[in-house]
């Protein structure tokens, strides 16, 4: 199963390496499956627009997370630098992801899980945004186009997961690949800059044994196969948002 986890990742590189030379160095069984899969969804070159052929998503198996996802949150923090807000009070600081501890009131059953933007198919934050700054990219990634964000915070009112943060202070020296600034709203963007380069999101890389990332539209992708086998629940499934982030063990 976790062999499949890196399918997406590998497919890109197999294509990038190009042809026979690469194929010779890859394990034969692996290559066979790659060859079939690679034919279905061609790897995107960076001057081509993304399409809705793919929908990125992930399955987080919280039974395999020993720290409740704290390592994933740390990796996110490090990647995007969202812990750099010295002037803000605690309740104003940005949180792209956080670890939530859950305990059932009746049974006492408890677990912890990382919660971030769930990358809904029907995101309430996109519906309410007056300017269209809160957007879903064709490949299912929900993000904020900060160029046209006016900072009204309506999306924060609308999000059921409290996934969004408002930047309360001026920032400098942001990550060059992850612009963020005062007066705009921000949230997990599934490491869109990494995905475009064919790399895994930072949190996925930080928990390789617990998270499977890939294309939900491709029934043969690792994540689709795993979801089919293991299930995979949504937080607030009752809202019928069809989230791109699924959990096992909640």
């Amino acid at each position: 199963m976790s062999q499949n986890r890196v399918d997406e990742y590998r497919r890109k590189f197999v294509t990038a390496l190009g042809g026979v030379a690469a194929a010779a160095t890859v394990a034969p069984g692996f290559f066979l499956r790659e060859a079939q899969a690679a034919g279905e969804v061609p790897t995107r070159s960076l001057d081509q627009a993304v399409t809705s052929e793919k929908r990125w998503g992930m399955l987080i198996d919280i039974t395999k997370l020993t720290d409740g996802g704290a390592g994933m949150v740390e990796a996110c923090k490090k990647e995007h630098g969202w812990d750099n807000n010295p002037l803000s009070r605690d309740d104003q600081k940005a949180h792209w992801a956080r670890v939530v501890n859950v305990k059932d009131k009746l049974t006492g059953h408890s677990f912890s899980l990382p919660v971030m933007c769930q990358h809904c198919e029907n995101p309430p934050c996109v519906d309410v945004c007056p300017t269209g700054a809160s957007m879903k990219r064709a490949d299912g990634i929900v993000q904020v186009n900060k160029h046209i964000c006016i900072g009204c915070r309506y999306c924060m009112m609308a999000c059921p997961y409290k996934a969004r943060s408002f930047v309360h202070e001026p920032l400098t020296d942001q990550r060059s690949y992850s612009p963020r600034g005062m007066g705009t709203v921000e949230s997990c963007n599934m490491c869109i800059h990494r995905i475009d380069e064919g790399r895994l999101p930072a949190c996925v890389e930080a928990a390789p044994d617990a998270v499977i990332f890939g294309d939900l539209n491709d029934p043969n992708s690792a994540v689709s196969q795993a979801l089919k086998a293991m299930g995979g629940k949504q937080i607030r499934a009752d809202l019928n948002l069809n989230t791109g982030v699924r959990y096992h063990g909640i």
């Binding site: 001057d47 627009a49 957007m135 990219r137 993000q143 060059s176 475009d196």
Partner: peptide, 17 residues
């Protein structure tokens, strides 16, 4: 900026970075 944000086009010639 619009090509990158909306369509994921990341060519380098006119990139601010």
């Amino acid at each position: 900026r619009d090509a990158t944000m909306i369509e994921g086009i990341r060519t380098k010639q006119h990139s601010l970075k």
